[in-house]
Write a protein that binds this DNA or RNA. Structure first.
Lengths: 125, 125
DNA sequence: GTAATCAATTACCTCAAGGTAACCATTGGA
DNA sequence: TCCAATGGTTACCTTGAGGTAATTGATTAC
């Protein structure tokens, strides 16, 4: 039996659209591939995501935690040690998001070339 | 032979990171799944992407065209007829982006539940 | 005593994303 | 004569994303 989709990202008010906005996001993708191999500390993630500010990383991680994609573990130590790891739900995102990152890396030559060509056309116009 | 990656989305200045930001994007995902089945007119896309404004759709489509992911064909008719279709390069994105959209639709129950639980915890704190 | 450590949090600022609404050009038809 | 239709563009405004820098708190090493 085929399923009548209860959820449709193309519908403005569908919750899945908000969810899509969260996962179709560069920071989300970068966090997920960084945590793909296992738990990482806050500082390790910040270092991996070269250039992200502490504030943005904090809110990105909290959003992902809220949606059940990762688990935050704060150890009662001084100085504090906080670890983040993907939940089973978050792990199901590894495939699609790693594919996106790989796509970005592998197709850069075509993209750059298309961009040059487009800009050249625009200059002539 | 294994390849030394020339491009790395995790590096701040790498062009692939800009490219990732473009494809890991809700509008991009929605445009790609809308054009997955063949060319569509501007108005058809706007209708499919329930709620998008003309201005945002125009700039989204132009960005994708610039990166070589879709082709824009303006027919010399009145009133104007403009068609958009994925290029071969753009078609290689269908897999990953359709996967993301499907993920958003299929995992909404878990996400919503996780969100409720998180917010309940926050209220107690 | 005090500097360093780590993971935040907060206030403040800037800049880009995105929405609304008006406008354009062209032609067929009422 | 004037409106409808199409795919924009533009000006203007609001909202949100994201950056910087200062601060917190307990402990250890100096």
């Amino acid at each position: 039996m085929s399923h009548t989709p209860r959820w449709d990202v193309l519908t403005r008010t569908c919750p899945s659209r908000t969810s899509l906005a969260r996962i179709a996001n560069k920071w989300t993708a970068m966090v997920v591939i960084t945590l793909a191999d296992g738990p990482r500390r806050f500082g390790e993630v910040r270092e991996a995501l070269d250039g992200i500010s502490g504030k943005v990383l904090t809110s990105t991680l909290r959003d992902l935690e809220r949606d059940g994609l990762l688990r935050r573990t704060a150890h009662a130590e001084v100085p504090p040690r906080v670890e983040y790891e993907l939940t089973p739900l978050g792990r199901t995102l590894r495939g699609p998001l790693e594919a996106l990152c790989r796509w970005a890396e592998e197709h850069i030559p075509e993209v750059l070339e298309a961009r040059d060509e487009f800009d050249a056309q625009a200059d002539r116009g």
